[in-house]
């Protein structure tokens, strides 16, 4: 379970998160929507400790992410992350991209790591691209590679940071399908997204962020059908 308590985050003098309280249960799929600059991506970075926080706490399975004594590298193994810019490692083949972290972070043997990598690549539909370098893959394929790379660490949670917004429109579908597949398999997911169709169909809950505040959270039918907040309604009217 991920518990976020009174989280505040500043970039210099600019406050980007203004006291967020949020619980995400195991098995839940949460979509986070909102305009750019609303703080929703920063939230993900704070959850896995890539950004320091100024106030409040993020607790993952009972461990405080930002506490001094926390072994952050160990904790991050539970938190798979997929970025907007897919960030595949260009100097490694698809197989090596996925197998590297299990090998050097988890200490798996070479053969074990490769077996994991192979099965995860097949899982996301890249079984025929094992020995290809990312430069030869399309954006959609690279994003699926990034998903496989995160899954290979056998995470409990997956964080998606606008996983489809940097893709050409015709490549968005294949990535959303992969995310949908994970949701069906019961993965706990927090998806920062601009894909309203995905948020409505796949998530258990949808949170709307507005200027660093979580304005509203609820089941998709309620957010999309009967939003309480004026800001939420305005935002949804604009994106549709």
């Amino acid at each position: 379970m991920i518990e976020i308590r009174g989280l505040e985050k500043y970039f210099g003098a600019l406050q980007v998160l203004k006291g967020i309280d949020l619980d995400v249960e195991k098995g839940e799929v949460l979509s986070v929507i909102g305009a750019s600059g609303s703080g929703k991506s920063t939230l993900l970075y704070c959850i896995n400790g890539l950004e320091p926080i100024q106030k409040g706490a993020v607790i993952v399975d009972g461990t405080d992410v930002h506490a001094k004594g926390t072994d952050i590298n160990k904790l991050r193994q539970k938190l798979g992350m997929v970025f907007q810019q897919w960030n595949s490692f260009p100097h490694l083949t698809a197989l090596e991209n996925v197998a590297l972290a299990p090998k050097i972070v988890k200490g798996k043997s070479r053969a074990e790591a490769q077996a994991i990598a192979e099965s995860q690549l097949k899982h996301v539909g890249l079984g025929d691209k094992l020995n290809v370098y990312p430069g030869a893959l399309s954006g959609g394929q690279q994003q699926r590679l990034a998903i496989a790379r995160a899954l290979a660490m056998e995470p409990t949670y997956m964080l998606f940071d606008e996983a489809t917004s940097a893709l050409d429109p015709e490549l968005v579908g294949e990535v959303l399908d992969t995310m949908r597949l994970l949701a069906e398999e019961g993965m706990t997911m927090i998806c920062v997204t601009h894909e309203m169709g995905f948020a409505r169909d796949v998530s258990d809950r949808v949170a709307y962020f507005h200027q660093g505040v979580m304005e509203e959270i609820g089941p998709p039918e309620q957010i999309f059908g009967d939003a309480k907040s004026e800001n939420t309604r305005k935002f949804l009217a604009n994106v549709r």
């Binding site: 890539l50 590298n73 991050r76 970025f83 972070v105 995160a150």
Partner: peptide, 8 residues
């Protein structure tokens, strides 16, 4: 960031 997010 990507590398660190994998726990490296």
């Amino acid at each position: 960031r990507a590398a660190r997010s994998l726990g490296m």
